[in-house]
Every structure is written in structure tokens, then in C-alpha cells.
């Protein structure tokens, strides 16, 4: 028998017929090259045992937190409920009625400071052609009690057909609200788009409040996010990074 790497590899992986395996055993007794190859293969495999380590402690928690923050993927929701076709039909009807559905249902989110420094959400309907008008207060968030990175239970609500989850954190004494959604958040009129960022990131300030958003491009799946806190605008990206959001 001659030396053949294919046969050697088949032997190492237990893929030779019984007959061929016997023949290869015989060959190994007399062939130093193949014998060394078999030994080296075993040594290499054994060395790799060193690298079969578990993930670092804490990585599981970090992953779980980020999944909790992620919006429900739109496809999942619709498919799971078996409403996929209905959903598409609904979108088509909207388009037929309004021409450009995204703009018609566009809504801006603004955040106001309520008494005692508690941040509250005010969602503002903003039809594309009309001036901004505060329509309703959808939710008021209690201040976060736990220190970062502990999570508050998220409040989930539906706004103009957009499922939004809001959570609050305390980061070094500052309360930070984080809203996530499977759809992009409308940008406030005063926002600066951070150039060169993808997905599109923007920042805005309203009075004492700073806002920071990261929008997935329309049509792409993923989670868009919106942060707000009473702090200088320049501090927000750092806070987002500390919360492992960016």
C-alpha cells in the first residue's frame, strides 16, 4: 500500500471499511511517515482540549440584556400570529388611501421633564404637513431605582402602529430612558445626523434633555433605538456604549 493522505484522513475519522482499516493498520506498522502523521494528528487534537473553555461569566447576562432591549423582529410578530398576509394587505390599503404611508403615520417622540425631575414620555403625532402638535401622553416612567446595568422591566406600547419598548436605567446617578423599536424613530427637527454612521445615528437637544438615536435603515430588519437623559448631549454616546447599546 502506498501513502495516501485521503486514506489516512479517512482512517483517522473512522471512515474506512473494516477491510481497508486492517490494511491501513498493517501499513502503519511499516511506514514511519504515516505513523508520525497519525501521532501528530492526535497531539494536535489533544492540544485543542485547552481551548474548549466556557464563555466568560457575565457574557450570558450581557447577551440576555441586549435581547431584552431588542424590539420584536417585525417578521416574527406577524408570522407567529399568522397575520403575515393580513399585515401586507393592511399596508397596501394604507398606501392606496394615503400614497405615502410612512409619512402619514410619522410621529415624533418628545420627552418632557415633569415635576421632581422625573422624565416622562410625550408622544407627539406629527402628520407630515402639519405643525407639531402634542397629542397624548402615552406613558410616564418612574425613575429607575437600580444601578446600571440592572434592567427595569420594559413598558411596551403601541404607537401609530409602531411597537415601542421603553426602559429606564440609572447610570452614575443620571436617569436614562431607552426606547427600542423594530422601526426607525422619527428624528426631531433639530437633530444633527452623525456623519458617516451606519446605521444612521443622530443627536438632538431639547432644553436640558439630550437625545440620541440610532435608526436602522427603513426596510432593513434590526432594532432602532432612542435614548434620552437630562445631560449634555455629548455624554449620551458614552452612556449608550456603557449600556452596551452601541
Amino acid at each position: 500500500m502506498s501513502c495516501d493522505e485521503g486514506r489516512l484522513v479517512a482512517f483517522l475519522n473512522g471512515r474506512l471499511s473494516e477491510e481497508d482499516e486492517h490494511a491501513f493498520d498493517e501499513h502503519l506498522l511499516t511506514c514511519e511517515a504515516c505513523w508520525q502523521a497519525v501521532r501528530a494528528d492526535r497531539e494536535g487534537r489533544q492540544a485543542l482540549d485547552e481551548l474548549r473553555v466556557p464563555a466568560p461569566p457575565g457574557l450570558g447576562d450581557r447577551v440576555t440584556s441586549s435581547i431584552r432591549l431588542a424590539g420584536i423582529p417585525p417578521d416574527f410578530e406577524t408570522r407567529r400570529a399568522g397575520r403575515h398576509r393580513l399585515h401586507r394587505l393592511h399596508r397596501r390599503r394604507l398606501r392606496a388611501a394615503h400614497g405615502r404611508p410612512r409619512r402619514v403615520v410619522a410621529a415624533a417622540m418628545v420627552v418632557v421633564l415633569l415635576g421632581g425631575g422625573v422624565l416622562g414620555w410625550v408622544l407627539q403625532d406629527r402628520p407630515a404637513s402639519d405643525p407639531p402638535q402634542i397629542a397624548r401622553v402615552v406613558a410616564m416612567m418612574a425613575p429607575a431605582v437600580a444601578d446600571e446595568p440592572a434592567l427595569q422591566a420594559g413598558e411596551r406600547f403601541d404607537f401609530a402602529g409602531q411597537a415601542v419598548t421603553v426602559r429606564s436605567y440609572r447610570v452614575e446617578g443620571d436617569i436614562v430612558l431607552v426606547a427600542t423599536s423594530a422601526r426607525p424613530f422619527p428624528m426631531p427637527a433639530t437633530s444633527h445626523v452623525l456623519s458617516g454612521s451606519s446605521p444612521a445615528a443622530w443627536m438632538a437637544a431639547e432644553g436640558r434633555l439630550a437625545m440620541y438615536g440610532v435608526n436602522q435603515p427603513a426596510g432593513r430588519r434590526g432594532t432602532s433605538m432612542f435614548l434620552v437623559a437630562a445631560m449634555p448631549m455629548a455624554k449620551l454616546p458614552e452612556v449608550a456604549a456603557r449600556l452596551h447599546l452601541i
Partner: peptide, 18 residues
């Protein structure tokens, strides 16, 4: 088979390097 042979070579190279 290509993949199996890559893995085999990898094992041997690893043993040799060590």
C-alpha cells in the same frame, strides 16, 4: 473530504508548532 484534510493538516501543524 477537503475539510477533513484541512483539519488533519491543522492538527499536525499545531503539534509541530507546539
Amino acid at each position: 473530504n477537503t475539510v477533513l484534510s484541512w483539519a488533519h493538516r491543522g492538527h499536525r501543524e499545531l503539534a509541530a508548532l507546539l
